[in-house]
Computed example of a mutant assay.
Amino acid sequence: MPAPNQTASALEARIAADPRYVALVRDRQRFSWILTAITVIVYSSFISLIAFDKPSMAQPVGGGTISLAVVLGAAMLVGTVAICAVYVWRANGSYDARLAELLADAGA
Rank of each mutant, 00 (worst) to 15 (best):
A3G: 12
A108H: 12
I15Y: 05
L103I: 12
R90G: 03
I34Y: 15
D105H: 04
F31R: 01
L11C: 04
V70S: 13
I47S: 10
R26D: 15
G63I: 02
T65C: 07
T39Y: 02
V42W: 02
P2T: 09
L99M: 09
K54T: 06
V71Q: 14
I15S: 04
A104E: 09
N92S: 10
V81I: 15
V42S: 05
P55C: 12
Q6G: 06
A108M: 04
R28F: 02
P60E: 02
Y95N: 00
V61C: 07
R26W: 14
V70K: 15
S94G: 06
T80A: 07
R26F: 15
C84R: 11
V78Q: 03
T65A: 01
P4E: 09
A97Y: 04
A97S: 01
G64E: 14
R30K: 08
V25F: 11
M57Y: 00
Q6R: 03
I15P: 08
P60N: 08
E101C: 03
V40D: 12
A82W: 09
V78I: 14
V81E: 04
P2K: 05
G107C: 06
Y95G: 01
I66A: 11
L24P: 12
A51F: 01
V88P: 15
Q29N: 13
R90A: 00
A104N: 08
V88I: 11
A17I: 06
L49M: 09
L103A: 05
M57Q: 04
A23Y: 10
R90E: 09
V22F: 06
E101R: 11
A16S: 12
G79A: 13
N5Y: 06
Q59Y: 01
D105C: 03
I83K: 05
P4G: 01
S94K: 12
V40M: 13
S44C: 06
R14D: 14
D18P: 00
A8Y: 10
S56F: 13
L11P: 07
Q59D: 09
D105S: 07
R98Q: 01
T36I: 07
I66P: 00
R28V: 00
V25Q: 10
L72W: 06
A100H: 10
V42C: 08
G93M: 10
E12F: 13
V22A: 14
F46L: 03
S32C: 04
W33P: 05
R28K: 11
R30C: 07
M76T: 11
A75Y: 09
V40G: 15
S32E: 08
R98T: 02
Q29Y: 12
A37I: 14
M1Y: 07
A100D: 10
A16K: 13
N92Q: 05
L68R: 01
A100W: 07
A10L: 09
I47L: 10
L77R: 15
Q6P: 07
W89A: 15
K54I: 00
G107R: 07
F52K: 04
A13V: 08
S45N: 13
V25S: 05
Y95S: 03
A85M: 15
A17R: 04
L72F: 07
G73H: 06
R30H: 09
L72N: 03
R20Y: 10
N5R: 01
G107W: 01
L72S: 00
L77D: 14
L77P: 02
S9W: 13
A16P: 09
L35S: 00
I66E: 15
R26L: 08
S44L: 08
L11A: 06
F46W: 02
A97R: 11
G93R: 03
Q59M: 05
G73T: 00
V40Q: 11
